[in-house]
Amino acid sequence: MAVNELTERQYCTFYLDGHFLGIGVKEVQEVLKYQYMTEVPLADAEVAGLINLRGQIVTALDLRKVMGLGARKEKLPMNIVVRSDDGPLSLLVDEIGDVVEVEKDSFEDPPETLEVSFRHLIKGVYKLQEKLMLVLDLDRAVFSLVEA
């Protein structure tokens, strides 16, 4: 299907601890500026808090913690709300980038040099003109968190 092909090649990009990452646009519900969060004491470290998204309560996960990156300093995180089987889920990222279109043949497997724990959560790399975009594996990084 044409739509499918299109979305496959469109990525919502964001920055995380200096990395440039992307999530397929069809997995993204919306993108939000910083939202007030209610902390959830005793929950896993990845859980940053709960957000009121138009009357619906959405769990926010700190993607830095998920990816094993250092803590965010000063700047307030932004939200990328993705769809999951369990309803929407918000991922906290440093900054949101553009939606980019990629060429299929610019894809490569994640470089071997990436740290294993990080590499595990990356589907692959798109070579964009000016930089590399890492494709986040949502299933492994986010949706599987509960079973872990």
Binding site: T38, V40, L42, A43, D44, E46, V47, L50, N52, G55, Q56, I57, V58, T59, L61, D86, G87, L89, L145, V146
Partner: peptide, 18 residues
């Protein structure tokens, strides 16, 4: 309102509200 499954396993919460 129900909690997402990332938080559901914390036994001290029964849910959340606005």
């Amino acid at each position: 309102k129900p909690l997402g499954k990332q938080v559901k396993n914390v036994d001290v919460y029964a849910g959340a509200t606005i």
